[in-house]
Simulated assay, not measured.
Amino acid sequence: MDITRSTVFIPGATSGIGLALAVALHEQGSTVVVGGRRTDRLAQIAADHPGIDTVPIDITDPASIDDAARTVLGRHPDLDAIVAMAGIMQVEDWHRRESFLASAERTVITNVLGPIRLIGAFVEHLQRRPDATIVTVSSGLAFVPLAATPSYDASKAAIHRLSEALRLQLADTGVDVVEIVPPAVATDLLPGQRDNPIAMPLEEFVSEVVDLLRSQPGAPEVLVERVGFLRHAEAHGTFDEVVATLNASDHHGR
Results as ranks from 00 to 15, higher is better:
Ala219Phe: 03
Ile180Thr: 08
Ala235Met: 05
Pro191Asn: 08
His232Arg: 11
His232Met: 02
Leu162Trp: 10
Ala132Asp: 06
Leu162Gln: 13
Val209Cys: 08
Val209Thr: 13
Met200Lys: 09
Val242Thr: 11
Leu166Trp: 14
Val209Asp: 06
Asp240Met: 08
Val243His: 09
Ser215Leu: 11
Phe143Val: 09
Ala148Trp: 08
Thr173Ala: 10
Ala147Glu: 13
Gly218Ile: 00
Ser163Gln: 11
Val210Ile: 14
Pro217Ile: 12
Val181Thr: 06
Pro130Gln: 08
Leu166Arg: 15
Gly218Gln: 09
Asp211Arg: 15
Asn196Ser: 08
Ile159Ala: 04
Ala157Asn: 10
Glu208Val: 11
Leu213Lys: 01
Asp176Asn: 11
Val210Lys: 12
Pro197Gly: 07
Leu230Cys: 04
Glu179Tyr: 02
His236Ile: 00
Phe239Ile: 08
Glu225Lys: 15
Ser155Pro: 00
Pro217Lys: 13
Val222Leu: 12
Tyr152Pro: 08
Glu241Phe: 09
Gly237Tyr: 10
Ala154Cys: 00
Leu213Pro: 00
Glu179Leu: 06
Pro145Glu: 12
Pro201Ser: 11
Ala235His: 11
Ser155Asp: 00
Leu146Gln: 14
Tyr152Thr: 10
Val181Leu: 04
Asp188Ser: 11
Thr187Ile: 01
Arg194Thr: 04
Ser151Cys: 00
Arg214Gly: 08
Thr187Asp: 01
Leu146Thr: 11
Pro130Gly: 03
Val206Glu: 05
Gly228Leu: 04
Val177Asp: 04
Glu241Asp: 15
Ala171Phe: 03
Val181Cys: 01
Val242Asn: 00
Ala199Thr: 09
Ala132Cys: 08
Asp153Glu: 05
Leu141Val: 14
Ser151Pro: 00
Asp188Met: 02
Val135His: 05
Leu189Ala: 14
Ile134Glu: 04
Ala154Ser: 12
Glu241Gln: 15
Val222Met: 05
Ile159Leu: 13
Ala154Gly: 02
Leu162Met: 12
Gly192Ser: 08
Pro217Cys: 14
Val210Phe: 07
Val243Pro: 01
Ser155Met: 00
Gln216Val: 03
Leu141Trp: 07
Arg167Lys: 02
Gly228Ile: 00
Thr149Val: 14
Thr133Lys: 06
Asp153Pro: 02
Val135Gln: 14
Phe239Leu: 15
Phe229Met: 03
Asp195Arg: 14
Glu203Ile: 03
Pro150Asn: 08
Asp188Arg: 10
Val243Gly: 02
His232Cys: 01
Ser207Glu: 14
Leu212Ser: 06
Val175Glu: 04
Ile198Pro: 01
Val210Glu: 09
Pro217Arg: 14
Ala186Ser: 12
His232Val: 01
Val209Glu: 06
Thr149Asp: 02
Glu204Tyr: 05
Thr149His: 09
Asn196Gln: 12
Ala147Asn: 15
Ser207His: 13
Pro191Leu: 10
Ser163Asn: 02
Pro182Asp: 14
Val144Met: 07
Arg167Gly: 04
Thr136Ala: 01
Ile159Met: 04
Val137Ser: 00
Phe239Glu: 06
Asp153Phe: 03
Pro197Thr: 11
Leu230Phe: 12
Leu202Asn: 11
Phe229Lys: 12
Val137Leu: 10
Val206Gln: 07
Pro145Ala: 13
Arg194Cys: 03
Val178Ser: 07
Leu190Arg: 14
Pro130Ala: 06
Val222Ile: 15
Val243Tyr: 13
Thr173Phe: 06
Val135Asn: 08
Asp211His: 15
Arg231Asn: 10
Asp211Leu: 07
Gly140Arg: 03
Gln193Val: 04
